[in-house]
Nucleic acid binder design. Structure first.
Lengths: 213, 213
DNA sequence: ATGGAAGTTGCGCATGTGTCCAACTTCCGG
DNA sequence: CCGGAAGTTGGACACATGCGCAACTTCCAT
């Protein structure tokens, strides 16, 4: 294996771990898988991480944070709250190509039994809700949204979309991806006092979202 | 081990599997764990179930089906759709005392890796949505609800409540139980064209639901 | 009572897991 | 150029997993 600095090697390990997790899920990601993905020996992983648990925790945090920061950057860039919200909902239309959502489900299920994981997961979920709430408030201020309870609306939209995505990813058969997007969009429009269709046609978006993230 | 009839032994295995799953989670429940819990040999489990996947599916089904049938009976008994819906939402107000919801989260996360469990989980989730849809249709027929899309509304209400309950049970800190109930109630009222408060005051209900199921 | 059926055993097998470590290779400062 | 430091190796180790199976025990119908 090509020799790397400690810093770069840690990155490479996390990167490889994510590549494997994408294929097999976080729970099924093994030391040997990661080593094979990197093209190195398995001993190398334990030279940089005390345990496999730490590798997985680092990988989970990396992914969850990345998505969040990406959306946060988007909110800063395009100031239009409606566009941000539409893009947020649209990103869920891609969850079944998206191994990240399986990661979230794993995290939620394990949270009750793993305090450290619970703290991380709770923190990131709160950040998502806060981001959504800020977006809604911005929309209310600029007059495009009408909502008396931005905090509650944020949690309702987030939870609805999580609940629908859960059906799409876990069962594949109960809820259709296009339905998920259309329903979530409709509900968001209702929450924010928008006319139907003003957040975009859900069905059309779903078609456009067949490519992976 | 004391000799049991095939029927009783299957029951005992399911019972033991649930006891283990309660402690360690569905994903971490192993053949040997279940055998130890029963005080029997591990071979016995495979004499009654073709695979561990089936054991877990049967265990999950046992718990999940019970709740469903209870609610279905309630729908038959008290014909009032609004009362059924209120009770349905109220039952979620007790999820954090309720280990059944943790089981649902375990099942959703594991569904991707265990085909039999996935099929069971999908089937039961569909049944819940169907039950909700029937309730909504009944309300529309009798004129108390107004809803143009009972199927979609059923999935939206179910998914919202699942998404909120997920926060309550997995994180304990992000969403408050009273909020969950109030928000879900408000959203349901919106879906069904009801005035605020007509499905019951969420906060009051939440107080009444501090005792376990 | 006896023989077959059915419940139960407990170990073996193949496979997979995280962790550890002594040896090897590569790099770079002196 | 050379010697120590740091990156890397690859297999050993102990343990866990699902599953299969031949032998053993218990029961009940004949």
């Amino acid at each position: 294996m090509t020799r790397l600095s400690a810093e770069r090697r840690r990155e490479a390990i996390i990167h490889a771990a994510l590549a494997v997790a994408r294929r097999k899920g976080l729970a099924a990601t093994t030391v040997r898988d990661v080593a094979a993905e990197m093209g190195s020996s398995s001993g190398l992983i334990h030279h940089y991480f005390d345990s496999m648990d730490e590798v997985l925790a680092a990988a989970f945090e990396r992914v969850a944070k990345e998505d969040l920061e990406q959306t946060e950057a988007m909110l800063a860039d395009l100031g239009d709250p409606a566009a941000v919200l539409a893009e947020f909902l649209g990103s869920y239309g891609r969850v079944d190509d998206d191994w990240a959502f399986q990661l979230w489900m794993d995290a939620w299920a394990e949270a009750a039994r793993r305090p450290v994981l619970r703290a991380t997961s709770a923190r990131l979920n709160l950040a998502w809700a806060a981001l959504l709430e800020r977006t809604i408030r911005a929309g209310v201020t600029s007059g495009v949204f009408h909502c008396t309870d931005p905090g509650g609306a944020a949690w309702r939209i987030l939870s609805l979309v999580d609940g629908l995505a859960l059906q799409v990813v876990a069962h594949r058969t109960t809820v259709d991806r296009a339905d998920m997007l259309a329903w979530a969009t409709r509900a968001a429009e209702g929450e924010l006092g928008l006319s139907a269709g003003s957040l975009g046609n859900g069905a059309r978006r779903a078609d456009a979202a067949t490519r992976p993230r």
